[in-house]
Design a protein around this nucleic acid. Structure first.
Length: 211
DNA sequence: AACAGGATCCTCT
DNA sequence: GAGGATCCTGTTA
């Protein structure tokens, strides 16, 4: 059973290196446990797609906290999305939890999302929070407590079947081509890719304008 | 005080 | 695959 210091050390380093390490790891809240199958990396001043790009604000303050805390925010005024804060004080960064498989507490997760197929319970960042029962009240909370809740457990031993893939992040108009989304191949709990309607189409820079 | 822009989700075709 | 709901947030005036 790894202690909090060992688990924190897994979260140290460049966010794009840490993010794929989270694939297959477990996040528990109460009696519901999700195995992460899809994540996205978000950096600091060097990442135009990140909430931390323009520095600290009341909303994103948790992104500048120690590794091992949650950054929860409200998306479209409605949906809570959760990140695991990584890196260190000098290098803000966070990993958005985009999708996962409910491996414990299925009965409770189904209650929270009635009429939904099991594979869809935590497929998508807002849905994942809903299934786990995470809200804004969890913003800034640590997941490293030995008996804490919520609690994150790193991947113990990667399986050969867990092939990792990467590609552009979902729904961003800024930095739409940075391949900082990571997911496990052949997992039905990975959400579908959607490019932002506002993002410039690929190759727009060197293509002539349409008539 | 007003505005533009969402790290989404759901419901249709 | 397309479009609308919905309301918070940061920025600008």
């Amino acid at each position: 059973m790894p202690g909090s210091a060992e688990r924190r050390s897994v979260l140290r380093g460049p966010v794009e290196d840490v993010a794929p390490r989270l694939l297959g790891s477990l996040l528990r809240h109460g009696s519901v446990v999700v195995r992460l199958t899809e994540v996205e990396a978000y950096g600091g001043a060097d990442d135009p797609g990140s909430h931390a790009y323009r520095g600290r604000t009341p909303r994103n303050a948790s992104m500048f906290a120690d590794a091992g805390r949650l950054y929860c925010y409200l998306s479209y005024g409605v949906h809570t999305c959760a990140n695991l804060v990584v890196g260190d004080e000098a290098h803000p960064g966070a990993v958005l939890l985009r999708g996962g498989e409910v491996v414990e507490g299925l009965d409770i997760a189904r209650t929270r999302r009635p009429g939904v197929r099991d594979v869809d319970l935590a497929r998508g960042p807002g849905r994942l929070c809903r299934a786990l029962g995470l809200g804004l009240e969890h913003d800034g909370r640590t997941v490293l407590g030995d008996d804490g809740d919520p609690r994150w457990t790193p991947t113990i031993s990667p399986r050969s079947t867990s092939v990792q893939l990467r590609g552009p992040r979902v729904g961003l108009s800024k930095a739409p081509d940075r391949a900082w989304r990571f997911w496990l191949a052949a997992e039905p709990t990975v959400s579908t890719y959607r490019r932002s309607p506002r993002a410039a189409p690929p190759g727009a820079d060197d293509a002539p304008p349409p008539c």
